[in-house]
Amino acid sequence: MLANYFPILLFIVVGLGVGAVAVSVGKVLAPHKPYDDKLAPYECGFEAFEDSRMKFDVRYYLVAILFIIFDLEIAFLFPWAIVLDEIGAFGFWAMMGFLAVLVVGFIYEWKKGALEWE
């Protein structure tokens, strides 16, 4: 079974290598004539007013935390889905309990507006 993972490792290495070769070829073949105006960050044609950090927006943080929770839920659902035959109705209802608790959380989020405007 482990023997199957060696091709995957090699593929990941080759995939990254293809990207690296592509970018290197680009750097070698392309001209390199930097000057200040060309290197300025894009700002619709004029000088940037301020530093490029945006204000901390808590909605991104909330989205990321909710994503962690649901990702964990998916991680629990994966083994359950494939052994559904072996664990029978008891296992099914155990997972329904899990999902019910998390649906309560989802409804709470929804009502509180955490899923809004973003």
């Binding site: 070829v25 680009g26 073949l29 392309a30 001209p31 004539k33 930097p34 200040d36 290197l39 960050p41």
Partner: peptide, 12 residues
């Protein structure tokens, strides 16, 4: 695309 310059912006 291979021939175009890869511009690395200032302070990037």
């Amino acid at each position: 695309l291979m021939m175009k310059e890869i511009i690395i912006p200032s302070r990037a």
